[in-house]
Nucleic acid binder design. Structure first.
Lengths: 167, 167
DNA sequence: TTAAAACCCTATCGGTTTAGTAGGTTATAA
DNA sequence: TTATAACCTACTAAACCGATAGGGTTTTAA
């Protein structure tokens, strides 16, 4: 059919840019799940010394390499600091009680809203929907978003760390 | 740049498709979104006569064939009845005020919970998590689930139809 | 009876995201 | 200098989604 013609570099680059957009489904991704667990693990520590990735991975049953990439992105987002070399690891930059779960979820998972047209931080108009004011899905999802934001905003890393230490 | 020759038609088509995905991301599936819209459309009708798939598809900008499969599954789930032949279509079996959005979402989307270990109807133990009582993610997602259930359970098809008719 | 309208079913496809794996590089403390 | 641990890049198998295609079957009006 298409005689094996190569795709021009420019075309590949253009398409690759578009790949950046995320496509998310209803379930919480492992990335977010592990990220929250790791943060809670670090926050539940009495001392403030750096925690090694390997220790978290072992304790929380997370693939080491996968966890590495998650902690890295948490560091780049400003939640964690890191220290290289022996005795290094990751540590919290802010106090646990000041870290709301809304911001954690937004960084790890992306939009909290279930449809882009009700997203506060990632808003996008639906292509198929002519009028949001009379859209049934829009009206419903606004409510879902607000109640979720309420829960996530009402929980901090301090709260989650307490659950962990309850044991 | 493009001295390699022409870009195959198929590649252009592929890239165009990818571009479309930018506008499609979101956690709620199209199936659920369209399904809710279709139900609201039918519920907002004054008369109780069957509504044709083609009419809904046109009015709500939904692919006809895709909508067909959605309405079919809604019929099989007991939300809709159908009438074949000329003047046929789909109609609600129950009164709109008796149809909670929780049941609609469960049928179309599946579990409402964001992790299986907090799902009421689709519970599954996490393989990696030894103890739910001290799991930070579990504790958080229980709250998210309950608030979402609260919203979805508090809305019926009657409520959504009212939003639609507001126009 | 016949043809149109409408429902029903199956199969397939292209493309994306997830959840990793593998392997190497850089910085730091002892 | 050497062991340690963070950091970086590239790749992949599997699952899944939205959509399409194309054919049926059934019912009803004329």
């Amino acid at each position: 059919m298409n005689e094996k013609g190569k795709i021009p570099e420019s075309q590949i680059a253009a398409c690759s840019l578009i790949f950046l957009f995320k496509y998310l489904r209803g379930m919480l991704s492992k990335k977010t799940k592990y990220g929250i667990k790791a943060l809670a693990f670090i926050a539940s520590r009495e001392d403030k010394k750096p925690v090694q990735t390997s220790e978290i991975a072992k304790s929380e049953n997370i693939s080491l390499k996968f966890l590495e990439s998650i902690l890295l992105s948490l560091r780049k987002s400003g939640f964690l600091g890191s220290k290289k070399g022996k005795g290094g690891g990751y540590y919290l930059i802010q106090e646990p009680e000041n870290i709301k779960m809304t911001s954690v979820v937004r960084v790890l998972e992306g939009p909290i809203a279930m449809v882009p047209c009700v997203s506060l931080n990632y808003y996008e108009k639906c292509s198929d929907c002519p009028d949001e004011a009379t859209c049934s899905v829009h009206a419903l999802m606004i409510q879902v978003r607000d109640s979720t934001l309420n829960v996530l905003g009402g929980n901090t890393l301090y709260d989650l760390a307490r659950v962990k230490k309850k044991a």
